[in-house]
Amino acid sequence: MIVKTLLAAIVAGLIAGVFMTAAQEMRVVPLILHAEEYEIQAPATQEPAAAGHDQHSSLNGTSPAGALLSALSPVTPAYAHEHEGEHEEGGIMFGLSRFSGTLLANLVTGAGFSLLLAGVSLVIGYPITLANGALWGACGWLAVHLLPAIGLPPELPGFPAAELGERQVWWAATVLLSAAGLYLLALRRELVAKIVGLALIAAPQIYGAPQPLDISSNVPAVLGAEFAVAALATTLAFWLVLGVVSGFINDRFVKVR
């Protein structure tokens, strides 16, 4: 029974992952590719851009020869700073194409979010059904995307950003606090629980997300705005599909009560 419950969540996640891949190709991925064109131009054009580049790849430029090489290198900064601080070669797993890599990652992410949603539902004892699936999905989107996006909006390649580790910690903490806050706010009847829930949701925003010192970027702001909205809209669609499909599968095949 436990296995069946987990399998149901994984299947829902895979379906949502396939849907997400199709949805991304419409708007989000073209915007990423567009932004990468500006990112490639960055170091050659002007001094401020080069300074911005140094800030990113400080570990690459330790020796003058290395700095010269990286200046002459045809490798784009996006690609170069992926290697920052690690000696591991990058590249896409199993020699997949970029699209297949994205599809694979979407399937894994979809299954992951689906299992998390099912896990929360099982632990707090509120089943996901076809009737309430969209609400479950909407809450997932709020906790994982909209609320963290207040501090760290979805970013394009080439956007300035604070140190990665700090942002990841803030992001993960915000997702956890927001999810806990939403639970208290939506599913508990006590007034105190609702107030604590609001406080949990507000806490990471008041604390503040790590921000970059230098916000200059070669990527046009319009692209960034379009991308932020497109990414949030796409993930909202993903979560709604995930919630509804999870509910449908639970109603039809699992019937956990």
């Binding site: 997400m20 991304q24 989000v28 991925v29 990423i32 990113h56 996006a78 700073h81 992926e82 290697h83 690690e86 591991e88 070669e89 990058g90 590249g91 896409i92 797993m93 997949l96 970029r98 890599g101 994205t102 694979l104 990652a105 979407n106 894994v108 992410t109 995307h145 963290p148 996006a149 760290l152 909006p153 979805p154 970013e155 394009l156 390649p157 950003a161 990665l164 942002r167 990841q168 803030w170 992001w171 990414a231 949030l232 796409t234 993930t235």
Partner: peptide, 20 residues
């Protein structure tokens, strides 16, 4: 991990995961 990052690059950006 560089391999995981490169494979999931577009996914990470699309989902708004902190990236780069």
């Amino acid at each position: 991990s560089a391999v995981l990052h490169d494979t999931a690059h577009d996914t990470r950006h699309s989902y708004g995961f902190p990236c780069h």
